[in-house]
Design a protein around this nucleic acid. Structure first.
Lengths: 342, 342
DNA sequence: AGGCTAGGGGAAACCGGTGTCATTTTCAAG
DNA sequence: CTTGAAAATGACACCGGTTTCCCCTAGCCT
């Protein structure tokens, strides 16, 4: 193979196949108005020389780059990397590339910052996992800049389009149902911060199951924490000190479940013998810690795939699958942290 | 602020400040051959309209994009995300963007794949953490394509340039010394796979300390595992079943240390009372698990920063700091998994 | 005062694609 | 064999920068 120093361009292809560069352009863009004979002739030359159009030049002409941005605000590293894999599963082989844009929603300039970024780089599309996906104002700004977007969200947001939904309430319901089936009746829930939609959804699913099993809701058993280890441990300590403590705790994420482990350890309470625990997320720690944590797993990689396909669907030559999914269900992973109540 | 629909270009600036576009180009590129008076005039117009040059156009003209790639093969998500933060700390405010390129070194087409990617996208520079950084052939290919690179590595590699070094052996030495100081004399080491340079470095630091404390090397106490939870647990089980088991185990990473926890748990051996454990990496799990794991922490974010600065140093207007660092030392984090031998 | 040198500045081409619109080809109908 | 309209193709400008090369001007020397 002759790897000459200069990259081969559309002009070379045009010259070599005896057509104008515009026709070559039509061929590589699958324009319908090219005669079959011509197309084949041009394609042959393209194949022969392994030509691929220059993304930069194309970006300039189209006033739109082939960059896809992942805009996120501090989800767990596991989440970020897994979703990234899913996205790249789809982008692989296309000319799209993934650029990372971590943001801090607490900063008040963050929307401006994202907007500048998107305009400056002429980003093709943005993928936004929670909690960025919940910022409707940002979404509007980004869309206004002519940048596509797909949101990952646990609920239907203000505008239902461009969203990959995760049925968080269902996941929570599976967790709660598992505990109820084991015979637990005093089940506590340590929920995440009210500012995250996911925490509402998970709480909702939890409550539904209580109703389903005719368990009376005890508001003292539903505490709010910050989705962190420390706050989780704190709330757990409070729960375990109650005169009539719960026999099971379902937490809004794994991080807080580990806090529960910690509190239980300190209080000399054994898991699962004295206390059952279920988390949410299936982080790697869940299967490393002892006893292995039962938890709810989200198909994050699949969600990333779906998001990417949604984003590029009408740009790239239609892929085989007809993009059937927009909604994903979590699954309960039962491990060793749950048992019948003592 | 007047956000007109059309973006302002170099032509607008040239017209408005009464000079040619080439002169504007000179100004934005800090060319020395512009009279001070002219520069100020042009800068004023640029400021007034908040003009920034279009990255795509510039990329086309320069035949070099402003994309920095992170090429990695499956380090821990924590590692990836933390390094990414460090890199973006530096890239923030520049026109550089970070694109992700996960690879699989076991695939035999992976070098070709990376090369195509780098050529196609005209990547400005690549940052390669271990173990990709250890693939000299890939490095050569990438460099040959006119793409800069910086490697993150635990040792001096074949070519010492463009490398951010981490003193892994020193970290291991700190860990071993801590155990020796506590009085341990039968100290085992579960090392990582021989194919990773880091595992050699860590072993080396470990051995140095044994010599330092006059502890005779017992080859049965040095086992190789796969840097994974399962293999770590396996080796630990073997160690604990010895007729004269070690009183302390230093593992090549945290993941394997968790395996040790698991094995100890199953064998009814208490940490740290019966067995001390030290890991390497300071993953989030280390401070979540019970008892908290003593481990060695790498300044990953700082390393990411250094790598990025190294990469773009002579392109961007010199930043304040004179890039003093190329080598980083880990630090031992003492937690609850270590105690004097029983 | 005239001539020389060097640096500031500009016109035009170029990077590698796409859009517009005119022109040529093709082919069915007359 | 025309004719005409639709289909296919091409010429050329343009996207927004940089590079090449040449000209102009100012300052210095003789």
């Amino acid at each position: 193979m002759s790897r000459s120093k200069r990259k081969i361009t559309i002009n070379d292809i045009a010259r070599l196949s005896g057509v104008s560069k515009k026709t070559v352009s039509r061929v590589i863009n699958d324009s319908p108005k090219v005669r079959e004979r011509t197309r084949e002739k041009v394609m042959a030359v393209i194949e022969e020389h392994g030509y691929t159009p220059d993304p930069q030049a194309r970006a300039l002409a189209l006033r739109r780059s082939s960059l896809i941005a992942m805009v996120y605000d501090n989800p767990s590293p596991q989440y970020v990397v897994t979703m990234l894999r899913g996205i790249l599963d789809v982008l692989e082989g296309t000319s799209f590339q993934l650029v990372m844009k971590p943001v801090d929603r607490r900063s008040d300039s963050y929307r401006q910052d994202v907007l500048r970024f998107v305009e400056q780089q002429r980003i093709f599309g943005a993928i936004m996992p929670p909690s960025v996906s919940e910022d409707q104002e940002l979404i509007d700004m980004v869309a206004g800049a002519g940048c596509r977007h797909v949101r990952i969200a646990s609920v239907v947001l203000d505008t239902p389009e461009n969203t990959v939904k995760t049925h968080d309430s269902d996941g929570a319901a599976q967790a709660a149902r598992h505990l109820a089936e084991l015979g637990h009746r005093r089940i506590a829930h340590i929920r995440g911060p009210k500012m995250f939609r996911s925490s509402h959804e998970r709480l909702r699913g939890f409550k539904e199951v209580l109703v389903e099993y005719g368990i009376k809701l005890d508001s003292k058993l539903i505490l709010e924490a910050g989705y962190t280890f420390d706050t989780g441990a704190q709330r757990a300590t409070e729960l375990l000190r109650m005169k009539n403590p719960p026999t099971a705790i379902f937490t809004g994420n794994d991080e807080m479940a580990l806090g529960v482990y910690n509190a239980a350890q300190k209080a000399g309470i054994r898991i699962p013998d004295d206390l059952s625990v279920v988390g949410f997320d299936d982080t790697p720690i869940a299967s490393r810690i002892w006893p292995n944590l039962s938890t709810v797993r989200l198909p994050i990689r699949e969600m990333g795939k779906a998001a990417a396909e949604l984003l590029i669907r009408d740009r790239q030559p239609a892929r085989s699958s007809p993009l059937p999914y927009v909604s994903f269900s979590p699954s309960l992973v039962v491990r060793k942290s749950t048992a019948p109540p003592p």
